[in-house]
Amino acid sequence: MIQLHDKMFVPFISAQEIDDAIQSLAKQVEADFGHETPVFIGVLNGSFMVVSDFMKYYKKNCEVSFIKMASYQGTTTTEVVKELIGLNQDLTGRSVVIIEDIVDTGNTLIELKELFKAQNVKELKIATLFFKPEAYKKDIKIDYIGISIPNKFIVGFGLDYDELGRNLPEVYQLNDK
């Protein structure tokens, strides 16, 4: 068990399970895009570790960039998504794969879909390491899912609780007892 600020967290997903899921995601995406040079867009801050490991396993040509979006305050979503850092490249006619650390409500995906629609991308796919099907309420297809999890608050491997816990190599779940 670990403590971050005022909350206790219990072990949930091991570093090995995370690594296996990322390898699987990379293979699936490579099978679909290995014939072209896709642009991978990591959604900061949480996806930096996912993107880093994903890039180690993706063996074909690709490009990578990041965008920063924010929708959480503490352990709850604000329901308002803000774009904090935008893209600096023309993606017209390109295949884009958004790489997320976690998809829960889907609010960030709505904003991202609109953003990339305005960029006139050829194809837009979404990959996420963690997916909370119970929390997801949108109609946007998640193309690549690493691990489906219950609707519990988690930290580690890029995910944080008020900026703490991102550096943990495994994932912990909020101990709500």
Rank of each mutant, 00 (worst) to 15 (best):
Phe116Met: 10
Phe130Val: 04
Gly156Met: 03
Thr128Lys: 12
Ile99Val: 15
Ile149Asp: 07
Glu134Asp: 14
Thr78Glu: 07
Phe54Ile: 05
Leu159Glu: 00
Gln23Phe: 02
Asp90Asn: 14
Ile126Ala: 03
Ala21Leu: 08
Asn151Tyr: 10
Val103Ser: 02
Ile22Ser: 07
Tyr161Glu: 01
Asn175Arg: 14
Ile102Val: 10
Thr77Asp: 07
Asp139Leu: 07
Glu17Ile: 04
Gly42Ser: 04
Thr108Trp: 00
Val50Phe: 13
Ile140Glu: 01
Gln23Gly: 13
Pro11Leu: 12
Ala118Asn: 11
Ala127Glu: 01
Ile18Met: 06
Leu168Tyr: 14
Phe157Arg: 02
Ser47Glu: 01
His5Gln: 09
Ser52Thr: 09
Val103Asn: 00
Thr105Gln: 09
Val81Asp: 05
Ala70Gly: 12
Lys177Ala: 15
Gln173Val: 14
Tyr57Asp: 05
Glu30Pro: 03
Phe116Leu: 15
Glu114Asn: 15
Asn120Asp: 15
Asp90Trp: 05
Lys59Pro: 06
Gly46Thr: 07
Ile102Lys: 04
Asp160Val: 00
Asn61Ala: 12
Lys60Ala: 14
Pro133Lys: 02
Gly156Asp: 03
Gly93Glu: 04
Gly93Asn: 02
Val51Leu: 12
Gln3His: 11
Leu4Lys: 00
Lys82Tyr: 10
Gly74Lys: 06
Asp101Gln: 02
Asp90Gln: 09
Gly146Glu: 01
Gly34Arg: 08
Leu4Trp: 01
Gly158Asn: 06
Val43Gly: 05
Leu115Lys: 08
Val121His: 01
Leu168Ala: 00
Phe54Gly: 05
Phe116Val: 06
Lys132His: 13
Glu163Lys: 09
Leu174His: 11
Glu111Lys: 13
Asp143Ile: 08
Glu163Leu: 03
Phe48Gln: 03
Ile147Gly: 09
Ile140Val: 11
Gln173Tyr: 07
Ser71Lys: 07
Tyr144Val: 01
Leu159Cys: 02
Thr105Pro: 08
Leu164Glu: 15
Lys117Gly: 12
Asp176Asn: 14
Phe33Glu: 00
Lys68Ser: 14
Phe48Arg: 07
Glu111Met: 13
Glu170Val: 08
Phe131Lys: 00
Asp90Gly: 05
Gly42Pro: 05
Gly158Ile: 07
Val155Trp: 13
Gly93Arg: 00
Gly165Ser: 11
Lys113Phe: 14
Phe116Asp: 08
Lys122Arg: 14
Ile98Trp: 08
Ser52Ile: 03
Val51Gly: 02
Val97Asn: 01
Ile13Ala: 09
Lys141Trp: 13
Val155Arg: 10
Asp160Ala: 04
Tyr144His: 02
Leu25Cys: 07
Leu129His: 07
Asn167Gly: 13
Lys132Tyr: 15
Thr76Arg: 14
Ile145Ala: 00
Leu164Ser: 12
Pro150Phe: 14
Met1Leu: 10
Gln23Cys: 13
Tyr57Gln: 11
Asn167Met: 05
Tyr144Pro: 01
Phe33Gly: 04
Gln23Lys: 15
Val43Tyr: 03
Ile142Ser: 03
Val96Glu: 00
Lys152Trp: 11
Lys60Glu: 10
Phe9His: 08
Leu112Ala: 12
Lys27Pro: 06
Ala15Thr: 10
Arg166Val: 03
Glu17Cys: 01
Thr76Gly: 09
Leu25Thr: 06
Ile67Tyr: 01
Glu83Asn: 07
Lys138Glu: 12
Ser52Lys: 04
Val39Lys: 06
Lys59Leu: 10
Gln16Arg: 11
Asn151Lys: 01
